[in-house]
Amino acid sequence: MIKGETLIFIGIGAIIVGILLTFLGTALLSSGKNQNSENGNGTVSTGGVILIGPIPIIFGNDKGMISLAVVGAIILIVISYFLFYKGGP
């Protein structure tokens, strides 16, 4: 089983990486280096996963993003299984 300190460290690291990626994305969009903003006909695809316990709720507006979200949900479920159920007594 993974120690509590390790889980806290992983959580804090994930939060820091998320904040850095948010700042990097904002900086790239505001600098005008985005290829879609130059010609004006870019499309936006969205998709996501909400995990409520072991049940995933998957949403999106593009088939490719939904399939990517399904793969991500499966990976998250497998990781959570190995972290919480595999190391039992």
Rank of each mutant, 00 (worst) to 15 (best):
T6I: 11
A69M: 04
S45D: 07
G18R: 04
I55H: 09
I19N: 01
I66A: 01
G88H: 05
I66P: 03
L21N: 06
L76T: 04
A14L: 12
I50L: 13
G32T: 05
P89R: 01
I16S: 11
S45V: 04
P56I: 01
L28V: 09
I8D: 13
T43L: 08
L21E: 03
I12S: 14
L51E: 08
V44K: 08
N36C: 02
K63E: 15
Q35M: 03
L68V: 00
I8R: 15
V44N: 09
S30G: 07
T22H: 03
F23Y: 11
T43V: 06
P56K: 09
L28I: 10
G42N: 04
I10L: 15
I19S: 02
A69T: 03
L28H: 07
N34M: 05
M65T: 13
I16H: 02
G53D: 11
I57P: 07
I52P: 04
A14C: 05
N61Y: 06
N41P: 00
I77F: 12
I50W: 05
S37R: 04
F9L: 12
A27W: 13
S37E: 07
I12Y: 15
V71Q: 14
A27N: 13
G64R: 06
V70M: 09
F82H: 10
S67E: 15
I77R: 14
L76P: 00
N61C: 05
T43P: 00
F82P: 03
S80R: 12
K3P: 12
I58E: 12
Y81F: 12
I74N: 09
K3L: 12
G48Q: 04
T22N: 10
E38K: 11
L20Y: 08
G40W: 02
G4S: 13
T26Q: 08
A27P: 07
D62V: 03
A73H: 07
L24K: 13
I74F: 12
K33M: 13
F82D: 03
V49H: 07
L28M: 13
G11R: 13
T26P: 00
L68W: 00
G32I: 01
V70Y: 08
